[in-house]
Design a protein around this nucleic acid. Structure first.
Lengths: 160, 160
DNA sequence: TTCCTTTTTGCAATGAGTTGCAAATACTTG
DNA sequence: CAAGTATTTGCAACTCATTGCAAAAAGGAA
């Protein structure tokens, strides 16, 4: 059983139907780069299946998020999606200036998470956690050195 | 000079014009409860100034946010605004189930903030920080006790 | 006060995302 | 493999928020 078929099994197990649209959106996201924008997913899906509707893409991505197949990241006001890799869970730091996204190891949020649960009984949704700010490259006084644990990648689509 | 006039002075000092629309929106937010939704601000402003336009409310709130008069909080996908009280800065924990918002003292984020800056050179926007999750009242296994530092208030408008 | 320049408003159009509903279709059972 | 049912799709309409642009108005100078 390939890893793609394992993903399909997740859908089947939860009682969701395997429609051509879902198979194609899943393949597009699985084979695409990190953080695909919805319009990007839509264009690629449509080229494989011309009847694809944008609303279906939105609904499908929302479903995939619910069952944990993909992770949603809000980058510069727009929703982006990436395949969930359980062995490489990470959060995001999104730069308000360049719209670049940096991965952040869950380790850095563990203590914060414990504090919220213990002090307030509040269980935060860290799976969809992203924090905006200004990255080291976009800071005027930036002097360069960055520690380990961060992995940058810049969007190659236009984000206004 | 009243505190309301001090707020106006902030606008004047930055070269913004004092239009009737801005005065009214400021008064509505200053006298309203915490976390007012945009539509709520709009309705109240319109009842004081019938020509008020929704786009003006959005632009005005955005301006007020830029100059620091108000703080923007995203609650359940919608933008909410509250007057900024410099002596009572706080972040928000927003419950995904009941849409209630809990204040969170900046103290709990200080270490996280330091870590991001020191390790990654990333300066997070903590002023607009809100984290979603499930609050103690909405957790099935909730056993009740909550520590100090949290102050709850529930929305009295409908959030779907 | 009057004139002038620049900002701001109101309106309509746009963009991202969601939703209601009838038609289409995936899966189940016989 | 055919029929039945519940889910899903496609379309259009809708919501929240933003934006382009001409008309209106705020604030400064004469």
């Amino acid at each position: 059983m390939t890893s793609y078929e394992q993903l399909l099994q997740v859908l089947r197990d939860e009682g969701h139907r395997l429609t051509p649209q879902r198979l194609i959106v899943l393949r597009v996201v699985a084979e695409g780069r990190q953080h695909m924008g919805v319009d990007e997913v839509f264009r690629e899906a449509q080229s494989a299946y011309p009847f694809m509707d944008l609303a279906t893409v939105y609904r499908t991505l929302r479903l995939f998020k619910q069952v944990g197949l993909v992770t949603e990241v809000a980058i510069g006001d727009r929703l982006h999606y990436e395949l969930t890799h359980p062995e490489d869970r990470h959060h995001h730091m999104v730069c308000r200036v360049c719209h670049g996204a940096f991965n952040l190891s869950p380790h850095y949020l563990e203590e914060f998470n414990r504090t919220l649960v213990n002090e307030f009984g509040f269980v935060p949704d860290l799976d969809h956690f992203a924090i905006t700010g200004v990255c080291v490259n976009c800071r005027p006084e930036s002097s360069g050195e960055v520690g380990i644990g961060s992995e940058e990648f810049t969007l190659n689509e236009d984000v206004p």
